[in-house]
Nucleic acid binder design. Structure first.
Lengths: 240, 240
DNA sequence: AGAGTAGAGATTGTTCAACAATCCTGCAAG
DNA sequence: CTTGCAGGATTGTTGAACAATCTCTACTCT
């Protein structure tokens, strides 16, 4: 028995180390530059519609033009930048059609993940829900501190971790893209509190339903949740 | 009235022209190089596991190393190549887990597209189904000529056009990726006829159900279709 | 013989400078 | 008000160079 447990512990340790190594390995100059730009975009320092000048950014980021262009490509395929041939790269300006498109995909993927849990409930260890709990509590703490952008970040992570329950690398990647694009939309909305506040409690409710293994109920709630969220963003869009 | 119709005609014309312009604009050296590599990979000239040497390909494709690397980045984010830092780019070797992952997403997306048609049936012009009919007939013709890889291509296009009915740019992009990865799998399977033949008739059946607006039935059929296809590939995988 | 190691050679990562191709701006002409 | 045309600025692409890392071979030591 003890060797079995030790083996399990060792496996878990190997996974975390492998993740760390991958994180270090990842550090090519292009990806570091992309990290910085990604933060600037998702935090709103680079507003939608802004053009990113090559010469300007090579000086700020201290990388060559070629490396910077590799960073641009990375972000382009995350949906955070768009290339216009011979004109440069821009932060995309999403419109109401994009909101509808993004939410359609979110609904399909996230609801399917939860429905998928019904079949494989037994093999799902209880601690798989821990990241979700952490995100819920982080959002609640940030709300108490009046830090609404942080609330938005925690809510995003909640949904990313929710998708993570499916153990699908491709769903994780797609969701990363979708949520990144969604953040683009947040910055054209003036009121971050009204935007994020209602979903703190709903995330907790969702988490508790999952904990209680009431997957059908959770799926139905999440479906309505995403419809409401979509309507909220569309409404803010029209009145801006 | 007549001005209204002329306006509609003008709009349609503008759309087709815009599409043509986009197609011409696409011609950067990096994307042309990516096109050639994409064909080589999806047609199997570059088998899974193969490494792509930079110096070698700069000579063949007649582009500089920097431009070639941009092409690599493009294909990396389509899932057709993987980067290993300081070791180069490789054609990925997918395994059975990837098959399960890919088919899970295909099922979710494609079935949802058809279910989505139920609500918006009235606004769906009949000619939207034409591309699907063309693909079905192309597959049948290729089968008669014993050109099984061409059958596979036509089948792929059928599913891409199926997703296209949703008018979702992001679903189109995701599907493009998923199907490209799927082609990677086809090349490790020896018997292309056994792989593709069963689905010629099933695609036609699906098309006829859509034409008859029996969307519920079509969704159910497609679901089972994709399960069977997944099992076929998994079976071929295990016996190879 | 086998395990470990040092170093040479090859490949990738990144930079730089230059030139070609394209786009944008402003202005003049019709 | 539109059209056509500089010219200046920006992007697209190239080639060479050097640094960083990996791979493979040959060697040493036990």
């Amino acid at each position: 028995m003890s060797t079995g447990e030790a083996e399990v512990g060792r496996q878990a340790w190997l996974r975390t180390v492998a993740a760390d190594v991958a994180r270090l390995d990842r550090s090519s100059s292009a990806e570091r530059a992309a990290d910085i730009l990604r933060r600037s975009i998702t935090e709103g320092a680079l507003p939608p519609g802004a053009q990113l000048s090559e010469v300007e950014l090579t000086e700020v980021l201290e990388v060559s033009r070629n490396t910077l262009r590799e960073a641009f490509r990375l972000l382009t395929h995350e949906g955070l930048l768009v290339y216009k041939l011979h004109r440069g790269v821009f932060v995309p300006e999403l419109d109401e059609n994009d909101v509808v498109d993004l939410y359609r995909l979110r609904r399909v993927l996230e609801v399917d993940v939860i429905r998928g849990l019904i079949d494989r409930d037994p093999e799902l260890p209880a601690d798989r829900l821990e990241p979700l709990q952490d995100d819920v509590e982080a959002a609640e703490a940030a709300a108490r501190a009046d830090r609404w952008p942080a609330v938005g970040t925690a809510n995003m992570r909640f949904h990313q971790h929710l998708i993570g329950l499916a153990d699908s690398a491709r769903m994780d990647a797609m969701t990363g893209r979708l949520l990144a694009e969604l953040r683009l939309l947040f910055h054209v909305i003036a009121a971050p509190r009204e935007l994020h506040e209602p979903y703190i409690a709903r995330n907790r409710g969702l988490f508790e339903l999952l904990e209680a293994r009431k997957y059908d109920q959770a799926a139905a709630d999440l479906h309505q949740y995403l419809i409401d969220s979509e309507q909220g963003i569309l409404g803010a869009f029209r009145t801006r």
